[in-house]
Simulated scan of single mutants.
Amino acid sequence: MKNLLLIGGNGALGKAVVNAFKATGAWRISNIDVTHNDDVDENYLIDGNSSIGPQVRTLREEHLETYDSIICTAGGWAGGSIKDEEGLESFDIMHKVCTMSALMTGHIASHHLAPSGLLVFTGAKVAFTEPAPGMIGYHVAKTATHAIAQNMATLDDLHDDNVVLTILPETLDTPGNREAMPDADYSTWADCDQVASLLKMWANEENVPKNGSFVALEVSEGSVCTKFL
């Protein structure tokens, strides 16, 4: 039995990942989140409004073990430009749910990822490829996530045979995104179950991209396709 640790395992993508790995019968799944996912083997709740350092220290000392794969699916989206207060407030939110989640994931992986294990961050294609002044908080937070992933991929704080990947969805097809953008063309959005299947394949050491890869998730005729940036 292999061990998977999810950070943000009760969000839309996290739930899809749980379902995909659980269906194999070969993975024991743990979840770190602000809410429970009843389908995992272990839930470790954190307070998103409190300092993350002491909480992670307690988790590491009292609960966490060694994991064959650690995947950060935590995140969110918020709009707003740097010109208005909405943009300033959105960064505060995005910093907590995107950047701090990624930072926590990297820290935990540096202590608990097994040799030859897989570490995956969830970035954003728009933040990687172009400016996005209409969603400044999201763009800055995801850019920071990419920086964390790049630093982890040096393997200075991991095992020499670990693999660090960052997925770059354009838009994930989630209930929250549909509510926020009711008039969008959903046919171009990445299906969470398909993304989860991709992550499961890599965690099972099949067609794994090289360490440090940033993998854009593009949609063609309803299927998620990968493009390396």
Rank of each mutant, 00 (worst) to 15 (best):
G80A: 08
Y138Q: 03
G79T: 10
C98G: 04
G117V: 08
I167H: 10
S101N: 05
G80V: 06
G87P: 04
G106E: 04
V164C: 01
D84A: 07
T73N: 12
P133E: 13
M100P: 00
E86R: 09
F121H: 10
D157T: 13
A114P: 02
A78R: 15
I70D: 14
L119D: 11
F128D: 13
I136Y: 07
W77A: 05
I108E: 09
G79N: 08
I70M: 14
I93K: 09
E89Y: 03
S69A: 15
I93H: 01
V140F: 07
L103V: 14
I93M: 11
A153V: 03
G134P: 00
G106Y: 11
P115I: 04
P133D: 08
N162T: 11
T73I: 11
S90F: 02
A127H: 04
T99G: 00
Q150S: 12
A132T: 07
T166N: 07
G123P: 04
H107S: 13
G80E: 06
F128Q: 12
V126N: 02
V126Y: 06
K83R: 12
F91R: 01
S116C: 11
A132G: 05
T145F: 00
K83M: 12
I70L: 14
G137L: 06
T73K: 12
A153R: 05
H159L: 09
G76E: 10
G80N: 08
M94E: 03
A74H: 05
L113M: 08
E130D: 12
I148C: 04
H95K: 05
S116I: 06
L155G: 02
V126D: 05
I108N: 09
V164F: 00
L158G: 09
I93Q: 06
L113P: 06
E89C: 02
I93Y: 11
V97W: 00
G75A: 13
T143V: 11
G117M: 07
K83V: 15
H95Q: 13
P133H: 09
E86G: 15
H139W: 13
E85P: 01
H112L: 12
D157Q: 12
N162W: 05
S101E: 02
E86H: 01
T105H: 02
P131D: 14
D156L: 04
L113D: 10
W77V: 10
K83I: 12
A124Q: 02
A124W: 01
L88I: 07
L113G: 14
T122P: 10
S81E: 11
D68I: 10
E89R: 05
